[in-house]
Design a protein around this nucleic acid. Structure first.
Length: 427
RNA sequence: GGAAGGGUCGCAUAGUCAGGUCUAGUGCGGCGGUUUGCUAAACCGCUACAGGGGCAACCCUGUCGGGGGUUCGAAUCCCCCCCCUUCCGCCA
């Protein structure tokens, strides 16, 4: 959410940004409602001020019956006027909020122009896709043959895009999560295990709602939703707080299951477990002072942390700078780490590194008091450390061996009981 | 799920029964000052957030868990909801 005063002062900029980001929002209607609300509110405030003065007169009137009657008469008139203004005020507030929530963030000048994924700009690469001396297979084939995956029974239990990990795949999943958690913790991040269900305000706060509603699982009986990322819960955690500057930056590394409806993706990525409704993720999250340069520094550092993990897993990857048309509404700028997937013959998204300035902080109401005593909204950032299924795919496909087993990169071995290979030989 | 007790401006509490002097009192903590060789103590002052207005000093409005209602007027009375604590039930 942007500062309302900023929107008032830069309506043309907002319109232009909204268009580049494919975000539909009626800025003129927003400004009209805003003006009307301020006028209405002012009228109501004047009436309330008179009401308060009247209240004092009433006290001073003591036992003077005639005067009291006269004051009560005036009070009745005020109350009647307010009774018509107040519903209008509330109605305007609701309409303003609705429009306001649709206004996207302002992208950074270093965000590339473009309309879709195709226009993302490669920043750099690491590693080289491996030359296999045999016919490599995709992860689904390998995992099923090696006793690590049961898709059919997963679908029986929970429908399409569901899966059951088996045998060494479970060891691998848990090992990867622990590996990522420990490695990021070593950089001074505080580990968290957060609720996978959250109230609606967390989703509004994080920027998932209102636009991303159809991607979220709802539990209407309990007025809860399943989080698509730990980020939602973390943003909600500090909602309404005024933090102390000396406690910043707050650096979290959070584990949570992630649930995604994947609405509108029928027929996309249907092989294996690339696009699924549920996976496990370790997420990095930073809350820092309201300073652009500091946000940028953390953005780069979160990227380095993610790259460190992918490098330790010996997986080739590239980093792309997300173009404005492909960037989520709430983000100022974003990098994706895309890891090489041999069966696809291309790099595919495994991490998403973003900063938001105070966009999430305004929505979720997370502030801090700076050295001068001024209360400001914090800046927030987050980046994937490790997402279970996509990392499993990359690791299995890149490190597969001729006999159908998978070589475990050295850095990961302590987390899988010292094993050097996973899966049973099947060819 | 059932019962009882709670939720007040950082923390702890008063106020709610009897609506108006609550512009929400007090203690602690924090900040600034006086005194002081230094520290402590003592004393004095300040100590929420949001919105609006004003060049400014400052002024106005709202917020006592949230929402609605009664009333000229609600921290206080009524209704609904949320959260916390304790006990019971159920339970990984």
């Amino acid at each position: 959410m942007l500062d309302l005063a900023f929107i008032r002062e830069h309506p043309e900029l907002i319109k232009e940004v909204a268009q580049r980001r494919h975000a539909e929002v009626d800025v003129d209607a927003l400004l009209a409602v805003d003006a009307e609300l301020r006028a209405t509110r002012r009228q109501a405030e004047d009436l309330r001020a008179e009401q308060n003065r009247l209240n004092k007169d009433m006290r001073a009137a003591g036992k003077d019956k005639a005067l009291r009657e006269q004051l009560i008469e005036r009070g009745r008139a005020l109350a009647a006027e307010l009774k018509t203004l107040e519903p209008a005020e509330r109605e305007l507030e609701a309409r303003l909020r609705e429009l306001w929530l649709l206004v996207p963030n302002i992208p950074d000048a270093t965000v590339p122009e473009g309309t879709s994924e195709e226009d993302n700009v490669e920043a750099h690469r690491w590693g080289t896709p491996r030359e296999f001396g045999f016919e490599p297979v995709d992860h689904a084939t390998l995992m099923r043959s090696a006793g690590m995956l049961d898709l059919e029974r997963g679908v029986r239990v929970a429908g399409s895009r569901s899966y059951v990990l088996k045998g060494d795949a479970v060891l691998l999943e848990i090992g990867l999560l622990q590996f990522a958690l420990e490695r990021v913790t070593a950089h001074g991040f505080t580990p968290l295990s957060v609720p996978a269900m959250a109230k609606e305000f967390c989703f509004f706060g994080n920027g998932q709602f209102p636009r991303g509603r159809e991607q979220t699982y709802a539990l209407p009986e309990d007025e809860l939703y399943l989080v698509g990322t730990a980020e939602v819960a973390i943003t909600g955690m500090h909602s309404g707080e005024i933090l102390r500057e000396q406690d910043l930056p707050i650096k979290y590394v959070a584990w949570s299951p992630c649930f995604r409806r994947e609405a509108g993706t029928y027929g996309k990525d249907t092989r294996g477990i690339f696009r699924v409704h549920q996976f496990e993720k370790i997420e990095q999250y930073v809350i820092c002072r309201a300073d652009h340069d500091e946000s940028v520094r953390w953005h780069e550092e979160l990227l380095r942390n993610a790259e460190d993990l992918v490098q330790a897993l010996e997986l080739p990857y590239r980093v792309v700078n997300i173009c404005v048309g492909d960037l989520g509404d709430a983000k100022v700028k974003g990098y994706d780490v895309e890891t090489w997937i041999p069966s696809d013959g291309r790099y595919r998204e495994t991490h998403s590194d973003s900063y938001f300035h105070d966009f999430q902080a305004r929505r979720a109401d997370v502030r801090y008091r700076d050295a001068e005593g001024t209360v400001r909204y914090v800046h927030t950032l987050n980046n994937t450390a490790l997402a279970s299924t996509r990392t499993i795919i990359a690791l299995i496909e890149n490190h597969q061996q001729p006999d159908g087993t998978v070589r475990v990169p050295e850095a990961l071995r302590p987390y899988v009981g010292g094993r050097e290979t996973l899966g049973t030989p099947w060819r």
